[in-house]
């Protein structure tokens, strides 16, 4: 059981964002989704947890068709599937520590003290120690992003979607996050999807890579296969060349 999109189409106000996307994530793998800005990577991922509904097509997670579930029924899926949003999405009236602890208390009924202890330990795993008590507005975007990752992984989900987890992080912290993602996938068999622009992460930890282009799945394969592919659009994207056949 895993995550699967079947012929998914999605438009907003008549403009097509995703066109017939079919993609299956293997259990326990780390699948990267790459593509230029605005091709619909985030929109595709938000379907996994029922934050968008497809116009047509199906979304399967853990053996259930999530596009048919009600908000209440979706909660079971959302318990299993963590989601790191592209924006850090921390609640700005809670400290980083409380932001991580709050879902722990809600989900597992932990007391304040236990939840805070766990929150502190997860924050330290993403490299946050002295800022744990600060409000999100008092720290930089990199720290907010890492705290939002801690908030999700602390809950121990079976599936995790990360929307650009290393964007805006310094190199050291970006590799630290990569290691965390890889370790969770390898040690606890978390099925992982990562939306990323970070070539080092892609070639460092991906099992497979899906390349979205103009709302369609353009290529899918291992990082090596993609690197060696002579598809002109894919190679322009991976080499980051301004000149080439890509339409933006």
């Amino acid at each position: 059981m895993s995550i699967e999109f079947k012929s998914l189409c999605k438009s907003f106000d008549g403009s097509r964002v995703l066109e017939d996307v079919s993609l299956a994530v293997e259990p326990g793998e780390v699948l990267f989704v790459i593509g230029t800005s605005g091709t619909g990577k985030s929109v595709l991922m938000r379907h996994v947890i029922g934050l968008h509904r497809p116009d047509s097509g199906e979304v399967w997670v853990h053996g259930q068709r999530v596009d048919l579930l009600s908000e209440r029924e979706l909660f079971e899926i959302r318990k299993r599937c963590g989601f790191v949003f592209q924006h850090p999405a921390l609640l700005d009236f809670l400290s980083l520590e409380e932001n991580v602890a709050m879902p722990l208390r809600r989900r597992f009924g932990l007391g304040r003290k236990d939840a805070t202890e766990r929150a502190v330990s997860w924050l330290s795993q993403v490299g946050i120690t002295k800022d744990a008590r600060s409000l999100p507005s008092e720290v930089g975007p990199g720290i907010r992003k890492r705290a939002s990752i801690a908030r999700v992984v602390a809950l121990g989900p079976e599936y995790i979607v990360y929307d650009e987890p290393t964007t805006g992080l310094d190199l050291v912290n970006a590799r630290r996050i990569d290691n965390l993602i890889r370790r969770l996938a390898t040690e606890t068999k978390v099925t992982t999807v990562v939306v990323s622009h970070d070539l080092r992460s892609i070639f460092g930890i991906a099992d497979r890579v899906a390349f979205l282009y103009l709302g369609r799945l353009h290529a899918l394969g291992s990082p090596e296969e993609l690197r060696e592919s002579n598809d002109p659009i894919l190679s322009q994207f991976l080499r980051g060349r301004a000149e080439g056949p890509m339409v933006l």
Partner: peptide, 16 residues
Amino acid sequence: SMVVTEQIDALRMNAA
């Protein structure tokens, strides 16, 4: 701005 920065979605993720 909480909607735009996905804070509302994060709440929904935790059934809040």
